[in-house]
Computed example of a mutant assay.
Amino acid sequence: MRTYGQYCPIVRAVEVLGDRWTLLIVRDMLIGATRFNEIARGLPGLSRALLSRRLRQLHNDGLIERSADGYTLTEAGEQLRPIVFGLADWGARYAFGDPRPEELDPEVLMWWMHGQVDTSQVRKRSVIQVEVADRRRTFWLVLEPGEASVCNYDPGFDIDAVLKSDLRTLYQMWEGEIELNEGLRAGTISLTGTRTAIRALPGMLGFSPVAPLVRAARHS
């Protein structure tokens, strides 16, 4: 391993965390990813071979350990939480702007969204159809008691609500740049369906874990 040749704790931390993709792997594990395929699906630009190598490095450095369900963060890994979200806070204030075209992937967004849906109040199956108008893509969020999944094909269940917008706007809603109700009022987001589903959706539809930081930066 190449080092910086300086005796300093900052240097040692950078040597552990400074490789490409490493902090994003830690980010995804901090918000709940535990299995290899879960991490890979949330980071489609990362090859599986390189993911294996980065996980091995994190294990060797004492930040993660293998478990029956895949991988878990050690205490040292968990202690990175304030650092990772501190970077998110700084990024929201000083480095965040409009999304670049190459940052907009509908499948990644839907994977992220399904992982943050609050199913604690779901008593029976509910299906949310998400239409990405400018990409001509449709996804289905299938919500069951205590579980959410995302489908790239029609699961064949009754649709309770339809959420429709362009991909850029959906990303901005997810990241906290705009509020769902703000988009509905502006007409950039459409939400139709049963009265019960429309009322429940804003409370169930999870947003990015960094959305509160983005909202705070936006209003500061």
Rank of each mutant, 00 (worst) to 15 (best):
S190T: 12
P155A: 04
L23R: 10
Y171G: 00
W140P: 03
E103F: 06
L141A: 08
E144Y: 12
Q172C: 14
V210E: 15
V14W: 09
S120I: 07
I25Y: 05
D154Y: 14
A88C: 10
P212I: 14
I31V: 15
G5N: 08
R53C: 03
T34L: 03
R218E: 08
L58M: 13
A186R: 14
L24T: 13
R137T: 01
E75T: 11
Q57P: 02
R81H: 13
V214D: 01
E65M: 12
L87M: 14
Q116D: 07
E38A: 11
Q79V: 03
G183I: 03
R41H: 11
D158P: 11
T194Y: 05
V150P: 02
R48F: 00
N37D: 14
T22D: 10
V122F: 06
L73G: 01
H114M: 13
P155R: 06
F139L: 04
T138L: 00
D69E: 14
R20H: 12
R56G: 13
R137M: 06
S126Q: 15
S52V: 01
P209C: 11
I189W: 02
E102A: 08
P209R: 09
A133Q: 06
L24F: 06
L58R: 01
L143I: 12
R136M: 10
R53L: 13
L184V: 05
V130T: 11
Q129F: 05
G183L: 02
R27W: 08
A33N: 05
E65D: 09
L80G: 04
I159H: 08
D160A: 15
D69W: 01
I189Y: 01
F96E: 00
Y171I: 01
P99H: 04
G176T: 00
E38Y: 03
A33C: 14
T138K: 05
R41A: 15
I178Y: 04
K124V: 10
V142R: 09
A40S: 15
P155G: 06
P209E: 10
R215A: 13
L104F: 04
I31L: 10
R185V: 12
V108G: 00
A211L: 11
T119A: 14
S149V: 12
L191E: 03
G91N: 03
L80Y: 00
F139S: 01
T169Y: 03
E131P: 03
I10K: 08
A211T: 10
C151G: 02
Q116S: 12
A200E: 15
R125V: 15
L205M: 15
V214L: 04
Y171N: 02
